[in-house]
């Protein structure tokens, strides 16, 4: 914070910067305190990146934005939390010993809402800067482009993670309050948590990549919803057809098309989970599991690299 002493702008004829204090007793006088120099700290890359991350993350929930920007995130958050809340409320009242569904299944049931959330927020996180060309103001500042991409990617992923994990936390806390077995609940919660975090990374990355090439917000929203829902339903079709033809291998690989099945199957294979598999498929062999893990990693890393590539080409004009 600049003190009056170092806020010097020697300008003949203009009042000295220190004068407000001296003249304070006078009433109703507006003092021109002149231009004040900034002599305080200038933060480096790390803190600037963090600041961009936090501002973007807040923006993903409408904080620091206009009133109507807060509506969609709030409504969607309520829509994923309220069912969880009512389930644990019921369990607490009736004294149930088990949740009616696993944490992983709950994540599976909110995927469409997650897609809609990403479709609404990814364009505001990245398309806005491109459309209104604010991007040239970022690039004319010290942080490199890769830091911008990293901050945006981390912020969007974190926002989706918060969105997905919040209802799981409600379920978990509610289950513990209802005195359900702690060990069982914790183990199940952690599986759900892992699924939610990885799923968020995949969906946030896909949303950002699509949004970064659609500067018009409306196009971005439509494109993201379409791509994600299409992928999901395509996977459903392939799996159904494969099951009809009694082809378990095709049915398993059909899951690659769906962001949710991709993450869940990879996770199930790595953790050797037997029951509760979302799409009730078993890997045909070790290769089947490996492929899912490889594709999952490729999608997450690929999205990040694509985003970097995209921003390397954004011109500052």
């Amino acid at each position: 914070m600049p003190t009056p002493a170092d806020a010097a702008t020697p300008q003949p004829g203009s009042p000295q910067p220190g004068s407000p204090q001296q003249n304070a007793p006078e009433q109703g006088v507006i003092h021109d305190i002149g231009y004040r120099r900034y002599t305080g700290a200038r933060l480096g890359r790390g803190p600037v990146r963090t600041a961009l991350f936090l501002d973007t993350l807040r923006g993903c929930f409408g904080l620091g934005r206009a009133g109507k920007a807060k509506v969609m995130p709030a409504v969607l958050t309520a829509m994923v939390v309220l069912p969880a809340l009512s389930v644990v409320f019921y369990a607490n009242v009736t004294g149930g010993t088990d949740l009616p569904f696993s944490y992983r299944e709950y994540v599976g049931s909110i995927t469409t809402l997650v897609f809609i959330y990403v479709a609404g927020q990814a364009p505001q996180a990245v398309s806005r800067d491109l459309r209104f060309r604010t991007i040239s103001l970022y690039f004319s500042r010290p942080i490199p482009r890769s830091d911008y991409v990293l901050a945006k990617f981390a912020a969007m992923s974190s926002a989706v993670m918060i969105f997905c994990v919040l209802p799981l936390l409600v379920l978990y806390i509610g289950a513990l309050l209802a005195k359900m077995p702690v060990g069982e609940q914790t183990a199940d919660f952690l599986k759900g948590l892992a699924l939610a975090l990885l799923f968020s990374l995949v969906v946030a990355g896909l949303g950002l990549v699509i949004a970064s090439v659609t500067p018009k917000r409306g196009f971005g929203v439509a494109a993201i919803v379409t791509v994600l829902l299409l992928a999901d339903s395509l996977a459903g079709v392939v799996i159904t057809v494969a099951e009809h033809q009694n082809n378990p291998t095709l049915s398993w690989y059909g899951g690659l098309l769906s962001p949710l099945y991709l993450v869940d199957s990879a996770l199930a294979w790595v953790l050797s989970l037997d029951g509760g598999r979302l799409n009730d498929q078993l890997p045909p062999d070790a290769l089947g599991g490996l492929v899912f893990v490889a594709v999952l990693l490729a999608v997450i890393v690929g999205n990040y690299l694509l985003l970097n590539l995209r921003y390397r080409k954004v011109s500052v004009s």
């Binding site: 914070m1 600037v48 600041a51 934005r65 040239s136």
Partner: peptide, 30 residues
Amino acid sequence: MPEHDCLPPDVSATEFVVHMGKMSGLPMTA
């Protein structure tokens, strides 16, 4: 200061300039 328009319409001037100040490495209060 670029020649073209570069301002997002949905934030206030204060919020915008605070944000760009932070992007230049100023701490929040500064």
